[in-house]
Amino acid sequence: MNISRRGFIKLLGAGTACYGLSRMGVDVAQAQTYAMSMKTAGAKEVVSICPYCSCGCNIIMFVKDGKFISSEGDPDYPVSEGSLCAKGAAFHALHVNEHRIVKPLYRAPGSDKWVEKDWTFMLSTIAKRMKDARDRDFKVKNDKGQVVNRLDTVMHLGSALMDNEECAVTVQMLRALGVYQIDHQARV
């Protein structure tokens, strides 16, 4: 049987978790000032992957009542064996972060501020801009009369932040629209 290291640690944990300070001859009244259980106790464990460098460290997310409460390295990932660097260690802080954009934002031409808009407005307006550009600038043939079927006036950058599956659908849809000026962080 292939006992995972994570499983092994949990087995150990189960045996010792009940030993509170009181069992160790310490004044319980004082000792209770300390957390008697881990903040992650009872949380669901979900495996994710660190979104920084390509070491690809697997990370365990601890999720309680749908809330992401803590994270740490996954000992079952043979490359990292559960360890993480500074950025990986901040995986939770990266996600649960007050600086994040959580609503679609729109900036009108000439405006000096963002305005919150709903997704319907954003999708329909962007689709219109895209179709207008495509209908206006799509090139079936180049100057030499060769068939090129492309759109020269729209570009797409990013992203290495995308999953493989996201990349696959992105490339599929862009090439269908005739957008070929595509690039991402592979070059910077």
Binding site: I9, L12, G13, A14, G15, T16, A17, Y19, G20, L21, Y34, A35, M36, S37, M38, K39, A41
Partner: peptide, 8 residues
Amino acid sequence: IDRVQAGQ
């Protein structure tokens, strides 16, 4: 100490 008591 919370982790250590839990075997971690």
